[in-house]
Design a protein around this nucleic acid. Structure first.
Ligand SMILES: [Mn+2]
Ligand SMILES: [Mn+2]
Ligand SMILES: [Zn+2]
Ligand SMILES: [Zn+2]
Lengths: 153, 153
DNA sequence: CTTTCAATTGCAAGCGAATTGCAACTTGGC
DNA sequence: GCCAAGTTGCAATTCGCTTGCAATTGAAAG
């Protein structure tokens, strides 16, 4: 496992930023394997949530589909990825910075599946009202938006 | 919106309130079959969304599981049921009055799966802001809440 | 009431997403 | 380098849901 200040083929493999996640993995006693690294690197390049199958399409050489599922479970458990449901029966995942507040939502075009990141969130004040009305505690929510993107209208 | 016990032929087919849905089915040219009636009657008794499998558990004598799925597709198409996703990979369905505004959400206990109906909704003003920011039109949303119910805290 | 036929059903096979058992293989500590 | 624990690949399974097809049935027409 050549650590990467050393350029073996002329490319600058910048593992740099990834250390944020690999450090967390290792300090929790998990091995830093080739498949896990490949998945982390791929996730890190994404702008929007990606499915396990899509990951496997890119990494079929470096990682089995089952291992991708297992890696995702691990990353979920460690809060290094967030899972989303766009309503099509396939889970999607997004890498998040450890510790950072990554809570957000998405707008999905119902015709072309274009995804836009959405920062607006269900208002805290309403959440509190809801807590009072229902008696529930530790309330979270799942929220996604759907509509027609500018190109599809 | 209640019953109208109108007996067309002297038989006491006590369909009572169900006529609201059966009328819609029949006027759209669909047959009023024994399985469909059984599903409608069962849905009508529910307070919360129910899965196809749960319906089949109650109606295994009167209706095949595949027919329940097909009935649900029909009811969805005619906007006589609403579909919800509680995040466990199984669709849930709730009967709604034809024409009525049935949009609402749910609070689900993450420990015991207790469900509470929720009337609070994502604010329209925020939806409009979102439309302006993203350029999307005809925006809808999927929203469910999760937390610990009073008994599970 | 009987006939008639398209709509509907039950059953079994099939599909895609996700999970799991297990033998073979890595990783990282010594 | 050696080894044990952790991890992987592969194949088989599970689970929710869909589909092809022959048999059945609702309801309209006679
Ligand atoms: Mn996102
Ligand atoms: Mn409801
Ligand atoms: Zn939110
Ligand atoms: Zn709403």
């Amino acid at each position: 496992m050549s650590s990467t200040e050393h350029h073996c083929c002329g490319h600058a493999h910048d593992r740099g930023i990834l250390s944020e996640w690999t450090a967390h993995l290792q300090s929790a006693g998990h091995k830093l394997t080739k498949p896990r690294l490949a998945v982390l690197e791929l996730l890190h390049r994404q702008e929007h949530p990606i499915t396990n199958r899509e990951i496997h399409a890119e990494l079929s050489a470096e990682c089995d589909l089952a291992s991708i599922y297992r890696t995702m479970h691990l990353l979920l458990e460690m809060d290094l990825v967030q899972q989303f449901d766009f309503g099509d029966g396939t889970a999607r995942f997004e890498l998040v910075s450890p510790g950072g507040d990554s809570h957000h939502h998405h707008m999905i075009c119902t015709r072309c599946s274009t995804v836009v990141e959405v920062d607006h969130c269900f208002p805290d004040s309403l959440s509190e009202t809801l807590a009072r009305h229902t008696g529930f505690k530790k309330i979270t929510h799942k929220l996604e938006f759907f509509g027609l993107c500018p190109d599809c209208q």
